[in-house]
Nucleic acid binder design. Structure first.
Lengths: 229, 229
DNA sequence: TAGATTGTTAATCGATTAACAATC
DNA sequence: TAGATTGTTAATCGATTAACAATC
């Protein structure tokens, strides 16, 4: 209880909040937002569980990782809980994000206006062939060459990089991003990125997601894999 | 042990393969493909585990849900295992997919050529405002009105629908898709879709993924949530 | 045959669910 | 006060890891 940082070794990820809990927080946040819009003032874990795909127990367990937001006999104040979870998610500060790879997915992200409500500001877009985008702007940002990333990172604080490059290119760029101080990578490439403990990697592997769907369709509950076309 | 179908009630999903296993199969498949390209003929679970983020035990456990693909003292034949997993994923037959919502993400999917290698054929694209896409073709497919979906489904077999509409619109269209015989929905909308047991829903919630990243960045191992901007 | 490595069972770990005393 | 509902502890369930006998 004496030392703080070096206490537990780096081998094991000793983060306090279980990943399963973190992955549910955005869903709670969204639901509470909807309830707020609907004018709901308070809600019990039992009611909330009925409207979502979780149990009341799970809701209470999850929330109590962060402290007691509820009140016995009353439930949770919707607006307050929404704000608290927003704070946990980091929605109370602004993040600067660059997009690395101006393909269709990269540009889709650049143009997704909802991210602005999440405190995400697109500060740069980079691509292998910036000349293809000459004169064009995406939310006020022009497309620059990948080679300019190191200089850009030296001049600007960047929190998150959305990595939407093909695998081969992505592998080379990831260390540049990490070395330049980016501490979160939203990885759409197929490449597995290794990073130091304090840099978070969030993978979005679309084709794996589709393969998973196909696999589950193959193994529909009850049916055997033997189904003919 | 007598009855087969009705044995276990519908409440619990009694699918045999744990979801955690299914979510790893695409990763194995990809890795094995890479190894094949590199001319690797055989590999042990220990070697494979070193190249991926899983343990050797886990690999053997996972694969043995589907049968014994390896050989004691030898390991696994890369090409054979690749093919077997491909079969499990359903890559041995073709799937017809429609895209519902011709926004940036919908069109990104339509243009993703790699899906063709996965046996995915785009058979239709639908949008609320098809007139915006008049004369344009995406991989040989034109954009039609959402209202034409029921008729289209009556005429054509469609396995998968990629649902890339805004939430409100998505909620209305999902039952149409399910009623029309689609048995897999790749859901990019924020809407939670409820479907009968034999229709698989695969969610890709991009903004939740980004929120998760932000949250994890907030709670970097060791650091408390107290960090100031 | 001896060595290697699987398939499979047993042990551990983590996440979910159930239960209930605390308390608003 | 009585009723409701949380926070929290204990029980269950599922997934991961370890161990080892079977076998190529």
């Amino acid at each position: 209880m004496g030392e703080q940082k070096e206490a537990k070794s780096k081998g094991t990820k000793d983060r306090e909040i279980p990943p399963a809990v973190i992955s549910r927080l955005p869903k709670y946040y969204r639901k509470l937002g909807t309830l707020m819009d609907g004018g709901v003032e308070r809600i019990s874990s039992a009611d909330l569980s009925r409207q979502m795909n979780v149990t009341a127990s799970q809701i209470r367990q999850d929330l109590n990782h962060f402290g007691g937001f509820g009140q016995q006999g009353y439930g949770y104040n919707v607006e307050n809980l929404h704000m608290e979870i927003g704070r946990i998610l980091g929605l109370d500060h602004e993040y600067s994000m660059i997009i690395v790879g101006a393909g269709r997915i990269g540009l889709a992200i650049a143009n997704y206006t909802r991210f602005e409500n999440m405190g995400i500001r697109i500060s740069g877009i980079f691509d292998r062939t910036p000349e293809k985008f000459a004169g064009r702007e995406y939310r006020g940002v022009t497309v620059n060459a990948l080679a300019e990333i190191p200089a850009f990172l030296r001049k600007n604080r960047v929190d998150i990089a959305a990595l939407t490059l093909p695998s081969e290119a992505a592998a080379g760029i990831a260390p540049v991003l990490i070395g330049g101080g980016v501490h979160g990578i939203w990885n759409f490439s197929h490449m597995q990125i290794s990073a130091p403990e304090n840099v978070m990697i969030q993978d979005v592997h679309l084709s794996e997601s589709l393969l998973e769907l196909m696999c589950r369709m193959n193994y529909v509950s009850g049916e055997s894999p033997e189904q003919r076309s």
